[in-house]
Design a protein around this nucleic acid. Structure first.
Lengths: 160, 160
DNA sequence: GCGCTGATGTTGTTTTATAAGATGATGAGG
DNA sequence: CCTCATCATCTTATAAAACAACATCAGCGC
C-alpha cells in the first residue's frame, strides 16, 4: 500500500515516527545517533523529496555554524550505514527510509515534477529479480531500483 | 542468453559489430556520427568495463589533442541520446549498449571485482515492474536497473 | 590521570559536470 | 555565389559533488 506523499498528510507524524524509530534502532544497536546526525536526519525528513548533500549543508548551517561538507557527508554515511536513509544514485540525493528495520530491497519511484519519492516493497519485482540473478549466477549486494517518471498526483490534472 | 564478457571471447568482433550498428543507426536516423563521437564510442567499446568520463578524456587526448571535458561530455550526451551507450548512474560511468536498436529496458549487472557489466533483457523482471508501476499509477520514463555484486566469473574460484 | 575509541573540526584537493560565448563546417534557398 | 541557419566544436571558467588527511575533543574504562 503506497503512502500518501503529497501535502494532505500529517507530516509531523511522519517525522516523529521516523525519528523515534531511528532513536530506538540506534540504541538497540549501540551506535550513537548524535546531535548532528539527528539534525541531518530531521532535515532529510522535512519532506518526502530527495535532498542533495549541499542543500542539507545549507539547511544545517543555521543550526550548526561550523558545518562543512565533511560534516554532512559523515552524517549521511552513518545514516546510510544504519539503513535510515537511502542514497538515490541517479540524483546524487538522499531520502528518508520508511522501513529501516525491515528488508532492504526497495523500489524507489522518483517523480520528475514534484521530486517526491515513493518507496515500495514490490515483492513480485524483487522475486523476479532474484530469479534472474540466479540464472545469471550473479551475487547481488544490494537491490535498490530507481525509476524516474511522473507520479500519480502530478499525472492527474488538477481536480475539476 | 548472457554474453561471454571475459577475456576468452573475440572482442574485435564485438567492437566491429557495435560500431557498424552505430553507423547504420545514425545514418538511418539522419544524425551525424562524427569522428569524435565515433572515437569515443570505440574507446568505450575497448572492453566491457564501465568507463569514466575523465578516463575517456585521457584516452581520447592522444587521438585528439585539444580534447577537453566538454568534448567528451558532448560526445557522451549524443551517444546516450542515440541509445548507443548507457550511463551507469551508480558509478558515474558509461558502457556500450548491446541492443541499441531494440527495447530500452535493461538490467545491468555490475561486478564489483572485475567491473564488467552484463546487460540482460530480464523480461520477467520488467513485466513485474510494469505491473507494479501500474498499481502505483506511476508513468516511468526509463527503466534501467543497476545491480551491484559479484559476477559468475569472479565468484568461481580459479579452475582447479 | 591515561589512553582508547568514536565523533567532529579543519583545510585542502579531487572528481564529475556544466555554462557561456566564439569559431567552424555544411547545406538549403535565394 | 552568397547568406543564413544549423549543428558541431573549441575555449575558458566555474560549479557541484565527494573525499582525504590530520588535528582535536568528549566519553569511558581502568
Amino acid at each position: 500500500m503506497p503512502i500518501s506523499t503529497h501535502a494532505e498528510h500529517d507530516h509531523q507524524k511522519c517525522v516523529n515516527h521516523a525519528l523515534t524509530i531511528a532513536e530506538h534502532l540506534c540504541l538497540k544497536r549501540g551506535v550513537q545517533l548524535t546531535l548532528i546526525r539527528h539534525q541531518v536526519l530531521a532535515l532529510i525528513w522535512e519532506n518526502h523529496k530527495a535532498v542533495k548533500a549541499y542543500e542539507l549543508l545549507e539547511r544545517l548551517k543555521p543550526l550548526k555554524n561550523a558545518a562543512k561538507p565533511a560534516t554532512v557527508y559523515r552524517a549521511l554515511d552513518f545514516l546510510i550505514a544504519q539503513g535510515l536513509i537511502h542514497r538515490i544514485e541517479s540524483l546524487n540525493a538522499f531520502i528518508g527510509c520508511r522501513c529501516s528495520e525491515h528488508q532492504h530491497e526497495q523500489l524507489l519511484l522518483i517523480c520528475k515534477y514534484c521530486h517526491e519519492v515513493e518507496e515500495r516493497t514490490a515483492t513480485n519485482v524483487m522475486l523476479a529479480l532474484s530469479d534472474e540473478l540466479k540464472q545469471a549466477s550473479f551475487v547481488a549486494h544490494s537491490k535498490a531500483i530507481e525509476i524516474h517518471g511522473i507520479c500519480r498526483t502530478c499525472a492527474t490534472p488538477p481536480k475539476a
